[in-house]
Structures are given as structure tokens and as C-alpha cells.
Simulated assay, not measured.
Amino acid sequence: MTAISGFANATATTQTNPVARNSVEAEGLSTMFLELLVAQIRHQNPLDPLDGTQYVSQLAEFANVESLQAMKISLNKNSNLLDSLQALEATALVGTLVDVKADAVVLEQRAAVRGAINLGVEAEAVNVKLYSADGNLVSEQQLAYSGVGTLRFEFPAQAVGGYYVQATATINGRPQPLQTWLSGEVERVSVGASKDDIMLQVNGLGNHGLLEINQLAYKG
């Protein structure tokens, strides 16, 4: 059963919203500048008044501060919008297969073990082995080598239990370990206050951050 949770944490009140807070700060800067300007004029020496160019210079500096504040508000609005879009995108992943960085999986029902490896250099051979939780070799595959890039693998349906995958590439006659990415279905999405708090619960593979996904897994 799939579920989506955490939307309450993704919303913020006006008091804690950074955009609203920045707007208040901008208004405060305007009020403060006007008060200082009035006080400066009121308390200036009538025998030696300030030059008008000094006021113009102060106004120019304040205009720069206001521009920077407006830019900050605009950037915060765009950032909040992107966070919301990423949260919506994440919830749309429920029920889909994704690749996550892992080498172990727990099957709660009979199912295939599939995944991928990313080969960054040319190799003479690429080998993937499937082991049971107690360390026994269950199956082994020699992947069809097609050059640098992503190579996918799949072990036919396995019994309920824990498994881990080990991949190696033979490069210049020497075996080199490879990072494995295992495929699983997204069962649940937890959305926090920002994109960094978005977590995906992947069937048999645990919890992973949205940014930790390698790619959508191909479902053949």
C-alpha cells in the first residue's frame, strides 16, 4: 500500500515564511532611512548646512540597498517555487521503478533482482554476481559489453530473503570493483521543509534522498 506524507511540514506560516519576512525587512529599511534623513536635516548646523549632493549620494546608496533587497526577495520566491515543483515531482514517483546506490536488497516476495552499473572506462569484461544473505553464490552473469556507459543486469525471480550484488570489471587484465545501482519501486515519499528533506522509501532498498536517485529504471 503506497502513501504520501509530510505535506504539512512543507507549508509555512506567514511568520516563518522567508519571503514574507524579507518584505517586512525591506519596508523597515525604507522607514529607517527616512527617519535618519529627517533627523539629519533637523539637527544639521544652520550655519553650515549639508551640501545637496550629499543627500543625492545617500539616496543613491539607499537605492542600491533596496535593489539588492528586492533581488534577494525575488531569489527566495524562485527558490520556494523550485522546492514546491521538486516536491510534486517526487510524489509522482510513487509506484515507479528507480535506481539507487545500493548493493543489498531484501525481497518480501518472490521477485527479480535488477539494477545497473556505470562503466567510466573501457574494460575487457564486466561480471555481476548475486549472493544470498549467508554468502552463498546464487547466480553469475557476464554482461554484454557495449563500451563506456550504463550496463543493466537482471537476475530472474528469487525467493524471499536478503541478497547482495557484487560487480567487477576486468581492466588491463585486472579485476576492478564497480558501484552497483539496484532497482526498486518507490512506495512512499516523505516531504520536509526543503528539497533536501525529500525522502523516497524504495521497496527492499530502504530510504533514499531524492537527489540520490541515479535514474528511472527501465522496466522491460
Rank of each mutant, 00 (worst) to 15 (best):
152 R>P: 00
169 A>H: 05
26 A>T: 11
23 S>Q: 15
105 V>K: 01
177 P>T: 05
188 R>P: 00
203 N>V: 04
214 N>Q: 15
88 L>W: 04
80 N>S: 12
27 E>H: 11
191 V>R: 01
209 G>W: 01
22 N>M: 15
202 V>Y: 06
217 A>G: 07
94 V>N: 00
31 T>H: 04
128 V>F: 07
30 S>F: 12
24 V>M: 13
123 A>Y: 02
162 G>H: 03
58 Q>H: 12
8 A>S: 14
53 T>D: 15
143 L>V: 13
156 P>T: 08
95 G>C: 03
154 E>M: 12
168 T>G: 06
92 A>P: 00
67 S>Q: 13
34 L>M: 15
145 Y>N: 13
220 G>L: 12
118 N>D: 13
18 P>S: 05
52 G>Y: 06
174 R>F: 12
175 P>Q: 11
181 W>R: 04
187 E>I: 00
155 F>W: 06
93 L>M: 09
98 V>P: 00
113 V>R: 02
134 D>E: 14
90 A>P: 10
197 D>M: 02
90 A>W: 14
191 V>G: 03
212 E>P: 08
179 Q>C: 02
71 M>K: 11
187 E>H: 01
71 M>P: 01
67 S>D: 14
188 R>L: 04
21 R>M: 14
181 W>Q: 09
13 T>W: 08
132 S>Y: 07
219 K>W: 06
160 V>M: 05
148 V>R: 13
147 G>I: 09
97 L>V: 00
101 K>W: 06
161 G>I: 05
199 M>N: 07
125 A>F: 08
194 S>D: 13
12 A>N: 03
144 A>D: 15
69 Q>D: 13
75 L>E: 06
105 V>H: 00
31 T>N: 10
173 G>L: 00
157 A>S: 09
10 A>M: 05
131 Y>V: 10
62 F>T: 10
20 A>N: 08
26 A>G: 08
180 T>S: 04
53 T>W: 12
25 E>H: 11
40 Q>C: 05
37 L>V: 07
130 L>H: 03
25 E>Y: 13
7 F>T: 09
76 N>E: 14
11 T>D: 11
112 A>G: 08
170 T>Y: 00
84 S>I: 08
21 R>C: 03
16 T>W: 01
215 Q>P: 00
159 A>D: 14
99 D>C: 09
140 E>H: 11
68 L>S: 11
82 L>C: 02
31 T>Q: 11
42 R>W: 02
25 E>I: 14
191 V>A: 02
174 R>P: 01
134 D>K: 07
151 L>C: 00
69 Q>W: 10
192 G>M: 01
148 V>I: 15
155 F>Y: 04
195 K>M: 12
208 H>Q: 09
24 V>F: 13
141 Q>D: 06
10 A>H: 14
33 F>V: 11
173 G>V: 00
177 P>G: 03
101 K>D: 14
154 E>A: 15
77 K>H: 00
50 L>C: 06
36 L>N: 15
13 T>H: 04
181 W>A: 04
158 Q>C: 03
181 W>T: 07
99 D>A: 12
184 G>V: 04
52 G>S: 12
22 N>K: 14
172 N>V: 08
